[in-house]
Design a binder for these strands. Structure first.
Lengths: 140, 140
DNA sequence: CAGCGGTTGGGAATCACTCTCAATTTACCG
DNA sequence: CGGTAAATTGAGAGTGATTCCCAACCGCTG
């Protein structure tokens, strides 16, 4: 209790932590925590499942990764720019496009303001059929 | 296979089904499947948990109810107007406001179009602190 | 009324995730 | 450079939600 340091965020760059970050950088698509754990297991770095979850959660909170919740309740993570953005996902092939839209941001703020809400965050997800899949579906 | 009726939706209005609908109509807020099951149990209608899940899922697909996924992966259901809309939720007290915004709808369509996507649906959720909770938090 | 099929329900099974706690690792001090 | 305290790890049990299985059931139709 010497009070030399009272920083609440004391995350250490351990080997496990780095391995998870690497695994995330490797993949382009969303991966579930379990998948990441699996990949890590196959590699040289043995990381506990609990650690994967912990790390992923921390990264999600600090905005380093995106989180998406599937219908079954399983969370998928994906490394992305720290800047705020949304996704356009193809419901057939899973292709994902990162999009930004200041229009929505403004709208969200306006609506929140109108109802007296403060400190508002928002989630937007667009789901449809990409050009290729649309064509395939039509031909079918 | 007499071809007298080929409607794919052959849902029978059974007592269980009606009970679930009633329970949904009763509540104003989101309820988890388990909560609904619990309420039904307390009442006169004994309904199996599996049935509740099945029915809720069917209703969600037909758009009769809204589904929301909590961080723990538990789905919450709420009866709502069939018309498309979104929610503004207080992260502290859970208060929910139903909102509509043609601005977002247009934006979503524009963005989807721009990327060649078709048949696009979208999900928008605003999470913040309602007026009351904001005040409380400030005073704290 | 009889028969057919959609429907039900209890409980086991599955799945994703969290918790606990001792052992290990890391950062930092002298 | 070695020591110490605190952060971190990991294995497995525990939790909670949801699905599966399958035989009994019930509403609808003839």
């Amino acid at each position: 209790m010497t009070g030399t340091d009272e920083r609440p965020t004391a995350l250490r760059p351990t080997r496990q932590r780095l391995a998870i970050t690497a695994a995330l950088s490797d993949a382009v698509d969303f991966q579930s925590a379990q998948e990441i754990h699996d990949v890590l297991r196959r590699g040289n770095d043995k990381v506990g499942l609990a650690t994967v979850y912990r790390t992923l959660q921390a990264m999600a909170e600090s905005g380093e990764v995106d989180v998406r919740h599937g219908p079954a309740g399983e969370a998928s993570y994906r490394r992305c720019s720290a800047s705020h953005h949304h996704h356009l996902v193809c419901r057939s092939c899973g292709r994902t496009v990162e999009i930004t839209g200041s229009a929505v941001e403004k709208w969200a703020h306006a609506v929140a303001d109108e109802h007296g809400f403060t400190d508002v965050a928002h989630t937007v997800e667009l789901i449809g059929l990409c050009a290729d899949c649309s064509a395939a579906a039509r031909g079918n």
